[in-house]
């Protein structure tokens, strides 16, 4: 049971780290827009990485020249 005297204070330290991390996320504005990121990830320009879509991307690049 003596291990608890060490482990519980460690848990307290971890909690403090988590609180500090959370406060950082609030300050950096990560909670300002809760809907956006969910949509944004769906519209990533990851087309070239999807198999079979590469050709289309090439065409786009040549089209913009």
């Amino acid at each position: 049971m003596d291990a608890l005297y060490l482990l519980i204070p460690i848990a307290v330290v971890v909690m403090i780290v988590v609180v500090v991390a959370f406060i950082y996320t609030v300050k950096s504005g990560q909670y300002d827009d809760l809907e956006g990121p969910a949509h944004r990830i769906l519209m990533d320009d990851d087309d070239p990485r999807i198999p079979g879509h590469k050709e289309k991307q090439d065409k786009k690049i040549s089209g913009s020249d």
Partner: peptide
């Protein structure tokens, strides 16, 4: 914005404190 971020920080401290 300030009010909201202060409220979130308070909830975080209370929530994590509560769990522990």
């Amino acid at each position: 914005k300030k009010e909201k971020s202060a409220a979130l920080r308070r909830i975080a401290v209370a929530g994590l404190g509560m769990m522990q």
